[in-house]
């Protein structure tokens, strides 16, 4: 499977996507809100608003949803959003978790796609239901129970992708802070591989460690980080998809930065 190899493809660039669209060899998924999609979108794309997916992301429902979008086990899927790749990542991860391995992220946002002058329209393609199997991939998921025991292990690195202030105020004990905004480069949702590797290596995120990412609530920012880690060639990543919100609700232990009135320097 793709994700076990170093050369795993995480993103699709604009040129490749355009030719795949011409060849009709791809299913493009727009995860923005319904209204935005209706206005205009990348030609031939279908709409799967993230909120819709999250309203019930049980495997059975997700299976039905993607079948209705004309995605079968072999379909090559490219996902895009207009939120620096975070929403797209969460959807891509969900597909991956279901067992769909051929899914990548458009390497830029829809706004940027448009500002590059690339084609877009408001046509809604006709799609036919396809059959998709379910073969769950628990190896990319971290639940709170899993995390609780895993984070004691030496070979596990837990990454908090929220903004620095949130982290300083409260975080899961043992986590390191890697705000999602560090992951992008200019007009790409993820830094080029070399730069990503350098960023992670500086932070000691290397080798064969298992890396678990989390963010504030639904695993979007940390979904992007999940793909960032894979893009740097680190194969062993998991997403704590229910993230800090669940952790807090379960009243699990948290830590904070002591002895500093850092909030004073924050945006008010």
């Amino acid at each position: 499977m793709c994700r076990l190899t170093d050369s795993c493809k995480i993103t699709t660039d604009t040129d490749s996507l355009r030719s795949e669209i011409r060849d009709k060899s791809v299913r493009v998924v727009d995860v923005r809100r319904r209204d935005d999609y209706r206005q205009d979108h990348i030609p031939s794309s279908v709409n799967l608003p993230l909120a819709d997916l999250l309203s019930d992301d049980s495997p059975e429902r997700v299976q039905k949803l993607i079948q209705s979008l004309g995605i079968d086990d072999e379909t090559s899927v490219v996902v895009y959003d207009d939120t620096f790749g975070a929403l797209a990542s969460r959807v891509a991860w969900t597909l991956e978790y279901l067992g769909h391995s051929d899914v990548t992220l458009l390497d830029t946002t829809y706004s940027n796609w448009k500002s590059l002058g690339l084609e877009h329209d408001s046509d809604v393609p006709e799609v036919h239901n396809r059959g998709h199997s379910v073969s769950l991939q628990p190896g990319i998921l971290a639940t709170s129970d899993y995390l609780e025991s895993a984070k004691e292990r030496d070979d596990v690195i837990l990454i908090d992708n929220r903004e620095r202030l949130n982290f300083l105020e409260q975080h899961i004990p043992g986590a390191i802070s890697l705000p999602y905004l560090t992951l992008a480069s200019r007009d790409r949702i993820l830094r080029p591989k070399g730069e990503m590797k350098r960023l992670l290596e500086n932070r000691g995120i290397t080798g064969s460690s298992e890396i678990i990412t989390y963010c504030g609530s639904v695993g979007t920012l940390s979904g992007l980080a999940y793909y960032a880690i894979k893009s740097a060639g680190l194969p062993n990543a998991r997403l704590y998809v229910r993230s800090f919100k669940e952790w807090n609700n379960l009243q699990k232990p948290t830590a904070k930065q002591e002895d500093a009135s850092y909030w004073d320097l924050s945006a008010e």
Binding site: E163, R164, L165, S177, L265
Partner: peptide
Amino acid sequence: QYSIGSAHFSTRENVQLHWVILEDVSE
């Protein structure tokens, strides 16, 4: 990216970024 979403103008015409992780300074 690396600080707390705000910067600080000092009295000596410097701009300061606080709460940067030491390992990120090179970035």
